[in-house]
């Protein structure tokens, strides 16, 4: 072996070891464990596909999946749309750009657990600030944290508060749209909307697509804020509408120590995420425009 090659392997070895030991190994182990009954203390029982059959019959797992999908379907389009609007606003903010960018980003810097604690109060049906404002404009004031119909929309509102990271990604993409293209279109007499739709949007479509994929994956794994608000050592039982997939998985694995069942849930989530990402990739072929430079 050439000394260069040997050295290269040396440099890469931390990642390779970590990938085998802490990523690939555990993914395979999760799969193997999903066919077992394991509670850490007693020995492993092999149960075949029973965990998967249980998951199909488990009303909590169904609820968790349904809630998670509902949330993702609502949050991802809203967050991308709002972020795009804010990014465009930011672009034309002139002298206020720096300040406005910082302001948008502050919620992203706020730890999720703190966001959860804060919004538990802001969303409160009786005393919360949000209903206080809505009431001032004579808008409906639902019980965001207790009314089954409004719990998930409330969680979406909380998540949208942290839309700043997507905004910055899209803003960065907007900044890379070559000015000469827009100027050329302007010379050709294209209006603002046409310039946006035919030039800006295709140019930033890779960044939008990237944000959709990453946000979807993150949304399907939403945990910290929701767990903070509704789970843990609470006196009231957590509402079923707040049971998100990873929250349920966490409780199965680390509260009830149903490790085998939780492994099956993990593996199912893994498959669901892969499937959704694959669909997004296929759809993106037609919609996303990649520059050839």
């Amino acid at each position: 072996m050439r000394p260069e090659t040997r050295a290269a392997y040396g440099f890469l070895s931390p990642w390779v070891i970590g990938f085998l030991g802490l990523t690939l190994g555990p993914v395979i182990a999760t799969f193997v464990m999903s066919f077992s009954d394991y509670d850490v203390l007693s020995s492993t029982q092999w149960v075949g596909a029973e965990n998967y059959r249980d998951a199909l019959d488990d009303p909590h797992a169904h609820a968790a999946l349904k809630n998670t999908f509902f949330y993702t379907a609502l949050y991802v389009p809203l967050s991308i749309g709002i972020a795009l609007g804010l990014a465009l606003l930011l672009q034309s903010a002139g002298r206020l750009k720096g300040v406005f960018r910082t302001v948008i980003y502050l919620p992203v810097v706020t730890p999720p657990v703190a966001t959860g604690v804060l919004f538990l109060q802001l969303l409160n049906g009786q005393t919360g600030l949000i209903n206080n404002v809505l009431g001032t404009f004579a808008l409906p004031t639902p019980n965001w944290t207790t009314d089954p119909m409004w719990i998930k929309p409330g969680i979406v509102i909380m998540s949208l508060w942290s839309v700043g990271s997507v905004t910055l990604i899209l803003f960065a993409a907007l900044a890379e749209v070559p000015a000469h293209l827009r100027e050329a279109a302007l010379v050709d007499g294209a209006g603002a909307w046409r310039r946006f739709y035919h030039i800006t949007l295709p140019m930033i479509s890779p960044a939008i697509f990237f944000s959709v994929v990453v946000n979807t994956i993150a949304s399907l794994q939403l945990f910290s804020e929701v767990y903070t608000m509704y789970f843990g050592a609470t006196t009231t039982p957590p509402p079923e509408e707040a049971l998100f997939y990873v929250v349920y998985l966490f409780e199965q694995a680390f509260r009830d120590f149903e490790m085998g069942y939780a492994a099956a849930l993990s593996w199912l989530l893994f498959l669901i995420i892969m499937a959704i990402t694959a669909v997004q990739l296929v759809v993106s072929r037609r919609l996303v425009h990649y520059r050839s430079d």
């Binding site: 802490l22 990523t23 182990a29 464990m33 794994q221 492994a263 893994f270 990402t277």
Partner: peptide, 23 residues
């Protein structure tokens, strides 16, 4: 190998959570 590095970014951490704990 670099594609594998990038691909591993998409992996949900839920898929490795339990065995990692057991390790």
């Amino acid at each position: 190998l670099f594609a594998l590095v990038l691909g591993s970014m998409m992996l949900p951490s839920a898929a490795t959570l339990i065995p990692t704990y057991l390790i």
